[in-house]
Design a protein around this nucleic acid. Sequence first.
DNA 1: AAGCTTTGCGCAAAGCTTTGCGGAGAAAAA
DNA 2: TTTTTCTCCGCAAAGCTTTGCGCAAAGCTT
Lengths: 338, 338
Amino acid sequence: MSKRPVSLKTLAQALNVSISTVSRALRNHPDIGPELTQRVQQLAQELHYSPNPLAMGLLKNATRIIGVIVPALVTHFFASIISGIESVAIEHGYYIVIRSSDESFEKEQECLSNLLQLRVEGIIMCLSQETRTYAHFDALLAAGTPLVFFDRVCRSNEVPTVVVDNQAAACRITRHFVAQGRRRIAHIAGPPALNISQERVAGYREGLAAEGLAFDAQLLVPSDLSAESATAATQLLLALPQPPDAIFGVNDTTAFAAMKEIKRQGLRIPADVALVGFTDEYHATVVEPMLTSVMHPTFEMGRTAALLFLEQAQGQVPPRQVVLATQLVVRESSGQKS
Amino acid sequence: MSKRPVSLKTLAQALNVSISTVSRALRNHPDIGPELTQRVQQLAQELHYSPNPLAMGLLKNATRIIGVIVPALVTHFFASIISGIESVAIEHGYYIVIRSSDESFEKEQECLSNLLQLRVEGIIMCLSQETRTYAHFDALLAAGTPLVFFDRVCRSNEVPTVVVDNQAAACRITRHFVAQGRRRIAHIAGPPALNISQERVAGYREGLAAEGLAFDAQLLVPSDLSAESATAATQLLLALPQPPDAIFGVNDTTAFAAMKEIKRQGLRIPADVALVGFTDEYHATVVEPMLTSVMHPTFEMGRTAALLFLEQAQGQVPPRQVVLATQLVVRESSGQKS
DNA sequence: AAGCTTTGCGCAAAGCTTTGCGGAGAAAAA
DNA sequence: TTTTTCTCCGCAAAGCTTTGCGCAAAGCTT
């Protein structure tokens, strides 16, 4: 039970003036005499007065809090994005409250209403893997509460979003494999409902087509983005009559899990199977062989999302769709075939 | 600019009753007739009324927000701890606002006063690496605002803390090295001001003594916990006239950086140099060789810290010091000497 | 039928801040 | 000297909720 902090009332009583006078003095209102203004400001400093954000929030109907919902917290990807959001938020005097949906649709809805109860000024979020319907955002949109999606998005003609050039990147990876002499290129994809999965699959097929390779449905295995499902997917691929000589994982976790499984089966990377991930993990350079991967500008993505929120919060501008560029960083895991 | 949400006033006007009646009806106060109570509750539901936390906060002088300060966000370690804190917070109807001090003393103070301005109900934090004086917590303590430290702590007779058995773990690692036939055991330590550094060094020396090995100051190199400084430390160690045959890194980043540098110099792990980290990183099992390390119960540490906060928030109980047990997980990187 | 207890609801204050308006006293103008 | 104009400050309301107290009408007792 901490005591009540010093308020305008505290100052007013100490100086024997009215609350409104103190308020004005602190804001250097011309109505207040210079001598009194001076005394008020000095006492405020001594007592470490700071305006009560609750009272201000009530008055201005603004909490200066942004709600952030991520599918998971304990990943380099989302931690880095959050870090980007935070940096912009701080610069503009906002606080952020983070909630994790744990990739669950139900929890996503819970987080959403929970944050709205807190009266956040807006929501910046990434869809959960299970999310297939988007009606739970109706209320937000109707109320005019700013909403921004990043990475996994929906309703992008109504809501501002920031994504990466998924299709182009996936295409680039596929063609890179071909350039390294690979012909049977597999893709461990994400959940079909997610735009990132769809776009990366599209890029994969685009790359195959561009290189004159036929699409083989056997080589496209979905996953739920978890290490376990990626391991299972890898096992499936390697057990094929004609196993792949290259695997492209939809994200970092997937790629690492695939690497582990390939090595476990005694196959060599890249001699037998080439591998590329979709990540900016620091650990890509620690594993052996070092993982070729698509650098994902996560921090930048977070900053952009926050900037898009600010845009909406200032005045209702039409929603913008920002596409960030990725970069293919070639390391060891996608070397020449033996 | 979102419109004002529905308030008691909205309901009162719609039903032509007073605000206080609505308030009571919603809380099933016996003074309100059953028929009216019913009507009020129904309308509240239809209009999705939820009490304004700002008004409640003002009234009860409680924001239900916990401030969390970490030295860095984008690490598995802190992300996992935050996740633990969040899980407990949610269960008890609290929100958490996270701020990163970026390992800077100045920023740590900034975050602190910033969160206090927000009127958080308490602070859960991990000291920055630069923090050597602890007077900035005086005001908190004096005001009776709950404060909890985790991992890197100070003033532990006044403030509740949660840490791991650093010394015991470091001792265990050292003796494990000896059991694997190592004699020149090095330690890449953390900043001397931190309790974790001190305790791990103490455990290191305790282990050496227990095994009858002399302490060699050359084999104890400090770092600032960053990959760069760990790389430099490793280079220093390997350039020694009598280089170490075992290295114990103070944390995950350090261990991974050391591994990279050792491999870069063409040395074999564990044949030439054994390596052990202090982490619970998923990636310990992805790198090659798989990293032997001390499992750090991060999620549990977060939960415990939150629980300690709740303890303080309920009533002022004497500060407790919780020590969590770690576990040495032996993998490949600490195998027998060749 | 007169007095008493319930029953059911509203008033107002407190918590903190900002801001339009009004008012008292002093200085300036007539 | 009287009127006007500043100068400087306080009152009160609004934003939302809870809660002690007061009050009216209805029900009850005798």
